[in-house]
Amino acid sequence: MARELPTGGVAAGVVPRPLPPGVRRRRFLQAVANHTVLVALSAMFLMPFVFVVLTALMTDRQALSAAIWPRPFRWSNFLEVFRAIDLVRYTWNTVQVAVGATVGVVVSCVPVAYALSRLRWRGRQAAFVVVLSTLMLPFQVTVVPLYIIFVRFGWIPSLKPLIVPMFFGDAFSIFLLRQFFLTIPEELTDAARVDGASELQIMTRVVVPLAKPAIAAVALFQFLYSWNDLFAPLLFVGGDPNLWTLSIGLAQFRTMTQVDWNLMMAASVLFMLPVIVLFFLAQRVFVEGVTLTGVKG
């Protein structure tokens, strides 16, 4: 890959000005070369998807053969897979977790971020440092005692450990929201304060509407995180297949009865689909969110 760097190092576009034909020809060839590289890379990025979908449409014997193209197309695999594993239940569990956790994070993190950015109180800076430092804390450090706490609560196995803690704040989301809230001009909130609005009103009526993109990004990230996560669900509901999320269900596919590659790929497709649709619907929010964490962080 790195080999392509020197030849393609025209890192940014060039300001247009009248050009002699020789240069224009070179530019044209350059553009063709550029697009060739881009198309080749695109093909590489798309290939795995293509193979997965094609295999999902094969018969089980064919999936085990050298064939690339399904013959015949077995669309019924997408129904079959619901019989092979309890996909409906896994999806329902995953939706509960993802929606619950997302609501929890938004409800709990907005006020904290507000307090950390808009309210003046002693220890605010210290609190922010604490939030930042928990960003660094590996989940592994707290997971054993957490497991034991949840056992004592009688929450294992249940979906609660995956949802309830999110109602008590999440360092990453607090951090992201606080960074965004800081960019909202003080004058706006001060003006509202002069008008006699309470802090709650300022938060819900002034700050939240302005911070919609950031809140959307936080919600989206949490949703995807919960939708995709394997480690925590494995710990907390791994013992009860009735509570499995899609991640566990798919990860265990091979070890369960009555499966083969074609159905496994069909399940993968069904698992990817909602997220990819979501991505196309909310691409802008998503890209902005990633960039916000990376560049402004």
Binding site: P48, F51, W227, F253, S268, F271, M272, I276, L278
Partner: peptide
């Protein structure tokens, strides 16, 4: 965007 589990299974 592919969920990590699905991506790993695919690979």
């Amino acid at each position: 965007m592919a969920p990590p589990v699905a991506a790993a299974v695919a690979f």
